[in-house]
Amino acid sequence: MNQEYLSTYEVFVRSARGLDHKHVGSLHAENSQQALMYARDVYTRRSEGVSIWVVEAINITASQEEDVESFIEPMDEKKYRHASHYQLPDKIDNM
């Protein structure tokens, strides 16, 4: 019954040159080469990509939801990192 001995791979597709690879989903495969080929057939049937990455899911380290308070929120408070934080004199409307 089991098919979990195939590994789960996360698939990332670069849709056009100059753009980032974007996560599109996952699939099961025996190894990374096979995963790459399956990714081509599963996620780029309409030539949606110019380049594909596959990453075995267990190799991804992710931030945790419960860490948001210490991990993400402090970054929110540094408004001075955004251009909108600064007020320009009226005479200048573009900078």
């Binding site: 098919q3 195939l6 699939l27 099961h28 495969a29 080929m37 399956y38 057939d41 599963v42 049937r45």
Partner: peptide, 11 residues
């Protein structure tokens, strides 16, 4: 034998 391969064979 599994969905991924089904799709690949069809191609």
């Amino acid at each position: 034998p599994y969905l991924e391969e089904d799709i690949a064979l069809t191609n």
